[in-house]
Amino acid sequence: MSNGPLPNRVDPRKLAERGVRISGEAGVKSLPNLCQSLVDKESVIDVDLQFSVDEQRIRTVTGSASGRLFMTCQRCLEPVEVAVAAEFNLGIAASEEAAKQLPRSYDPLIVEAEEIELLPVIEEEVILSLPFDAYHDDCSIKTSFGKSEAAVEETEKPNPFSVLAQLKADNK
Rank of each mutant, 00 (worst) to 15 (best):
M1S: 07
S2F: 12
N3W: 11
P5W: 07
P12F: 02
P12N: 04
E17F: 10
V20Q: 09
V20H: 06
R21K: 15
R21E: 13
E25D: 07
A26M: 05
L34D: 03
Q36A: 13
S37L: 12
V39A: 03
V39K: 05
V39Q: 05
I45P: 01
I45L: 01
L49A: 03
F51A: 08
S52G: 15
D54V: 09
E55I: 10
E55V: 13
R57N: 11
T60L: 04
V61T: 00
C73Y: 08
C76F: 05
E81Q: 14
E81M: 13
E81L: 07
V82Y: 05
G91S: 06
I92T: 04
A94K: 14
A94T: 14
S95I: 13
K100A: 06
L102H: 04
Y106L: 08
D107L: 06
D107G: 02
E112R: 12
L119Q: 02
L119T: 03
P120T: 00
V126A: 02
I127V: 15
L128P: 03
L130F: 05
F132W: 09
Y135Q: 15
D138L: 09
D138Y: 06
I141A: 15
S144H: 10
F145P: 00
K147R: 12
S148T: 15
S148Y: 08
A151R: 09
V152S: 08
P158T: 04
P160Q: 08
V163M: 12
A165E: 15
A165I: 06
A169N: 04
D170M: 14
D170K: 09
N171Q: 13
K172Q: 15
K172Y: 01
